[in-house]
């Protein structure tokens, strides 16, 4: 059986539509995941032991279980408990919680890597703990977060392909739909891979640009 890439060409509008959904899911999860990650990261460093413990449990549990299982709990499990959420919402929530756990570790590590002298100098000038974190520590920690955040966002794009199993019409599912009609698995999956690569590559370029722009002269 020879290769026939015309099916890819014909299916391209459909694939691009799927890619758009993938971008949508990823961007929302990226924003929500970053917020969750920042809050959980700060919570883990909090002096409040209950808050720190809660955040530690969250990270341990979410990182220690497969994303697919988490998504299935949200989409197939919760309705049994009377909570029926739309597939798209389940996908976004699942991805956000999952990437948030990794981002919280990035946030925590970056904050801890900032020299204690920075905090001490700020406190000695009369900055409150919150001001010290917001004005002095986080801006410097953010620079150190960027490279690992870039990796995390790329992982997020790739992981988002799992939401196709919740019937969300993303890039992955669009490819599968085309295959179910054309039976051209090889060509279509190659095309899907290329499109995913274009997305992740764009993401890596964006984060690299940000790094360069924010680095102090």
């Amino acid at each position: 059986m020879g290769l026939d890439f015309t099916v890819v060409w014909e299916g391209l509008p459909y694939l691009l539509l799927g890619a758009l959904v993938t971008i949508e899911v990823t961007v929302i999860a990226l924003v929500l995941g970053s917020i969750i990650g920042l809050l959980a990261g700060l919570a883990r460093l909090s002096k409040n032991r209950y808050l720190a413990g809660l955040a530690a449990i969250y990270v341990a549990f979410v990182r220690g279980t497969p994303l697919l299982v988490q998504l299935f709990i949200l989409y197939f499990g919760l309705p049994q408990m009377g909570v029926k959420l739309p597939a798209f919402l389940c996908g976004v929530i699942g991805l956000s919680i999952y990437s948030g756990s990794y981002i919280s570790e990035i946030v925590r590590g970056a904050i801890q890597s900032i020299d204690r002298g920075q905090t001490e100098a700020a406190r000695s000038l009369g900055f409150s703990p919150a001001q010290t974190m917001r004005l002095v520590v986080l801006p410097q920690a953010f620079l150190r977060m960027l490279p690992p955040l870039g990796n995390e966002f790329i992982a997020l794009i790739k992981n988002s392909s799992l939401v196709s199993l919740l019937t969300i019409q993303d890039l992955m599912r669009a490819g599968q739909r085309i295959i179910s009609i054309t039976f051209r698995s090889f060509e279509v999956y190659i095309a899907v891979a290329v499109l995913y690569f274009l997305l992740t590559y764009t993401m890596s370029v964006i984060t690299r640009r940000m790094e360069q722009a924010l680095r102090i002269q």
Binding site: D115, G117, Q118, E120, A121, A122, R123, S124, L125, G126, V136, P139, Q140, L143, I216
Partner: peptide, 16 residues
């Protein structure tokens, strides 16, 4: 603290 200035051995200037 704001009324008592502190100067550190390692300066601790804010790098950003």
């Amino acid at each position: 603290r704001s009324q008592v200035g502190m100067v550190f051995q390692n300066f601790n200037l804010f790098g950003h």
